[in-house]
Design a protein around this nucleic acid. Sequence first.
DNA 1: ACGTAATGTCACAGTTTGGTGACACAAGCC
DNA 2: GGCTTGTGTCACCAAACTGTGACATTACGT
Lengths: 226, 226
Amino acid sequence: MRVAGILLVEDDPSVRTALELALTRQGHSVTSYATGEEALDHIRSRRPEIAILDVMLPGIDGVEVCRRVRKLDQLPVILLTARGDDLDVVVGLEAGADDYVVKPVEPRVLDARIRAVLRRAESATSDRITFGDLVIDRGALKVMLAGKEIHLTPTELRLLLELVRHPGQVLNRRYLLRVVWDHTHIADSRLVDACVQRIRAKIEPKPAEPVFIHTVRGFGYRFSPP
Amino acid sequence: MRVAGILLVEDDPSVRTALELALTRQGHSVTSYATGEEALDHIRSRRPEIAILDVMLPGIDGVEVCRRVRKLDQLPVILLTARGDDLDVVVGLEAGADDYVVKPVEPRVLDARIRAVLRRAESATSDRITFGDLVIDRGALKVMLAGKEIHLTPTELRLLLELVRHPGQVLNRRYLLRVVWDHTHIADSRLVDACVQRIRAKIEPKPAEPVFIHTVRGFGYRFSPP
DNA sequence: ACGTAATGTCACAGTTTGGTGACACAAGCC
DNA sequence: GGCTTGTGTCACCAAACTGTGACATTACGT
């Protein structure tokens, strides 16, 4: 049996104790806190394998913890939500949660979810970079936006990867043509622009106001996270 | 979080120190050496959980250490190789390395690879991997789908195992040709495609919509469980 | 506000890629 | 020798991808 280092954050003491007990009995090693602040500290110092966060918390709430965690780490997150509130679910998944569970939850179900999430996280062996909503998996060659997989064509992917490799730097068209395409292409063409446009259409919420790939007039393009 | 006893062997002092620091910060316990001889001693006496070996070392090089280690133990090994040196990769994998990482490497990436290898090593002890309906028994060299045994030919099995060894990762045709077949084959050949197609015909419920072996156009194939 | 240069946008046709089935050949087995 | 099985190749086809150029739009200097 796999023993996971679980971080549980839940402000209701009775629920917290009950879940902690149940999960411990299931063979997990659990640490629990009542607030998001403590949780973030724990994550930074103790590096749990998975975090289970109540959405409703005093101070920094679960969704916010999730969002921050996602920024710095690939730590798998399960959100606990009180009502079957669809809005929470959407917000949660957008914040990068791996799963959500509606309370009250049977320990068995939670355990199953934990295992499922851990298992999924396991198979994600690859190097990932996360920029807010955008997750780029360089090993799996996958791009995900708000949890949904985005299909990029080979050239688009190569160009995006090249841009991402130098975050914050302006790369000019000549360079991109040379690196992404075979240098056999004419320097003056709308090729790079067209490709950038195609990528934007896929990953930018509003392509007209790009958040990821910025145009630097007269120089080229710059990838910088929002 | 799991704390691994990592053995790091790298002759360049600055790289060594940097990696040791980064990995330590990531919660691993690291011991490092500059030579293969010291590393072998350490392995025999201290039994680390995983070894990270630079390929280029004075004296006994990383590949050789890997080869010897493999003979006496199942110690997982990650090889560090200088940028883009394909030959090293092939030799390394033939020596039984579990993974290879190209320098310079971001600490995060290395950390992810370490965790992946350790997990794989853990599950390898069972000799049996389950992906949904698909069960691959590496000990018995058998593949079962929904309880029924599937017959794969030797080549098909080698290819499938190679893909499964790196779940979620895209492996390109050139790599597969070299590892699964003897690298004596021409780079441009439909061999891999044909073999994948044959495997799909056997293990995919609907070969036209594969669930296990996914095509990544322009790059290669990826095994990822449903 | 105007003109100009730079960039965005789009459709389409030529090209590339991978799926698929057929086939030839070799090796092993009866 | 005939038969079966495994494996590499090939040709064909559908689908996906991509470069291109014409045109629209935007940003910037004056």
